[in-house]
Design a binder for these strands. Structure first.
Lengths: 172, 172
DNA sequence: TTCAATGTATCTATCAGTAGATAGTTATAT
DNA sequence: ATATAACTATCTACTGATAGATACATTGAA
């Protein structure tokens, strides 16, 4: 893992626990073993780091989701696959969805970060809509909103109560 | 409105837009017209302010909800009343639910704030469970979790996309 | 093949601004 | 007189950011 990748990972952990202001250049630099000034070499500003973080998070998420048609061809329900990915994000990492937390604090974010958060949800809704179409739902775009809302909300409440059984109950 | 009330209001606006770190004693003092040091007279520490803020927010929320039995006696659906209160919080104030945002960044909060956020959701789930019982639902506690998850999630996504029509769609 | 030029990744040192917090003082109102 | 609610002044710690230096690797031309 390059230093740049390590910086993004360190920042991701902190943001997913406490939001955009929950990490500083000094903190992540210390964790990685360089000086805070050197972080600016990789990311000119904090907003640049935040935007790249959200962008890569989105890409990794969609890549993990895979293709709706492939899932169907495999006799799986894409909505179950989607739910499972959220479940892993919470249960394995014990952390919020990066873009969920950032989205909630949208108005305090730098523009370029806000844009990447929007991209996350636009792409998620598009994927879910396609999934609901493939499932033969009558109102796929409506169903897509319900799906992602329920998952993000259940995640938030599980974190707030520090009890993952709420997420499990909401998604069973 | 006393200075103390004004300080809480100023802090609430900022927290609901960007989370716990999105306000400083200096900022809210300026808005209210006193010095930042004087804020410590009303709230010894920032954590005290945050905890009192969440506590009063919870009380106001529950008070606005009213009594489940009264709502039923009035031939209204308590779940509709609950949904409407969330809708107003988003559409009228154009802001997130205070405890939703704080809950998402739970792990980075001072203990006493975390406790108040937990209280918000515990009381909300209890109210919703009672409401679903009154509606004759077979699994009231399960339904309560689904209800609050969907609303918090829809709120979060509407903020992330800066488009309230997502919330409307999710709650129609 | 050598050597100058360039690029990469880091460093030290420093800056102005802001954070929450404290001590001690003052004005006002009961 | 006492309690309330503000003040001034100051502290330490931390914020993101910048300038300028260093070491090292890569590259391209004479």
């Amino acid at each position: 893992m390059t230093k740049k990748e390590a910086l993004l990972k360190a920042a991701e952990d902190k943001v997913r626990l406490g939001g955009y202001n929950n990490f500083s250049f000094r903190e992540i630099a210390n964790e990685v073993g360089i000086k805070s000034a050197s972080v600016h070499y990789h990311f000119p500003t904090k907003a640049d780091l935040g935007a790249e973080l959200a962008h890569q998070y989105t890409n990794a998420f969609l890549s993990a989701l895979g293709d709706v048609d492939d899932i169907k061809a495999n006799n799986q329900n894409p909505i179950d696959v989607y739910t499972q990915l959220f479940r892993n994000a919470l249960l394995t990492d014990n952390k919020m969805c990066l873009c969920g937390l950032l989205g909630a604090q949208n108005e305090s974010l730098p523009d370029k970060v806000r844009l990447e958060v929007k991209r996350f949800f636009d792409l998620n809704l598009a994927w879910l809509e396609q999934a609901h179409v493939a499932n033969g739902e009558s109102e796929p775009s409506h169903a897509a909103i319900l799906t992602v809302s329920l998952l993000e909300g259940a995640m938030m409440i599980s974190k707030a109560l520090n009890d993952h059984s709420y997420f499990k109950l909401a998604t069973k």
